[in-house]
Design a protein around this nucleic acid. Structure first.
Lengths: 98, 98
DNA sequence: GTCTTATACCTAAGATTGTTATGTATTAGA
DNA sequence: TCTAATACATAACAATCTTAGGTATAAGAC
């Protein structure tokens, strides 16, 4: 969900850049590890939510990801789903008697 | 975390009662399934956060759970940890440029 | 009376997803 | 020249949830 969200806000990004962006946005509190990131990117791509574009930077290769049309829809859905989750959790956590 | 929280608010409860309470508090949106509930209760008990008391109701047996002193501390910690998570996620999700 | 639903406990197989570790390679800076 | 940062990726392991199955009592519908 986070990956989809930052791609939705920032447009074309590559994996490493996403980790940096998330760390920055969360003030270092969310560290998207590579073992979580890359399999997620590959899965999202396989599901048709992301499309890729490989770019050579000198001798190094960068793989840029962009949301597909379907990806934009899913991004919105996943974020609002998460917002609902937060609301639900808040109502569960607010209650306390005595 | 949810289990610890409802036990903290409501005191002595048995497993089935916890699922009902959580469903009620979340307006049916969080369904604590038995396959998730019981292993969690057993783990929390093994970790020393819960203590049990078996009560016979007619021929049926109920296993009541109560927070230990350590359990109360952990309950607070886990809840505030989750609150921090929500705050962090909110700051990540809020950002969006045009 | 009998059948279904609710109550009440539990475990286990399978799936998902994250962490940790490892591998490879380029580039920048000390 | 050595280390840290950049940049991709996979795999073993761990944690945890869902789904499915098992057992049994109590309440209510027909």
């Amino acid at each position: 969900m986070i990956i989809l969200k930052v791609l939705k806000d920032h447009g074309k990004m590559y994996g490493y850049e996403i980790t940096q962006r998330v760390a920055e946005l969360s003030d270092g509190r969310i560290l998207l590890t590579e073992g979580a990131l890359y399999p997620s990117l590959h899965k999202l791509e396989a599901e048709g939510f992301l499309k890729t574009e490989v770019v050579s930077i000198g001798k190094r290769v960068r793989k840029y990801y962009t949301l597909t049309a379907e990806g934009k829809t899913i991004a919105k859905d996943r974020v609002s789903e998460f917002m609902d989750f937060i609301k639900t959790m808040s109502s569960v956590l607010q209650v306390q008697m005595s």
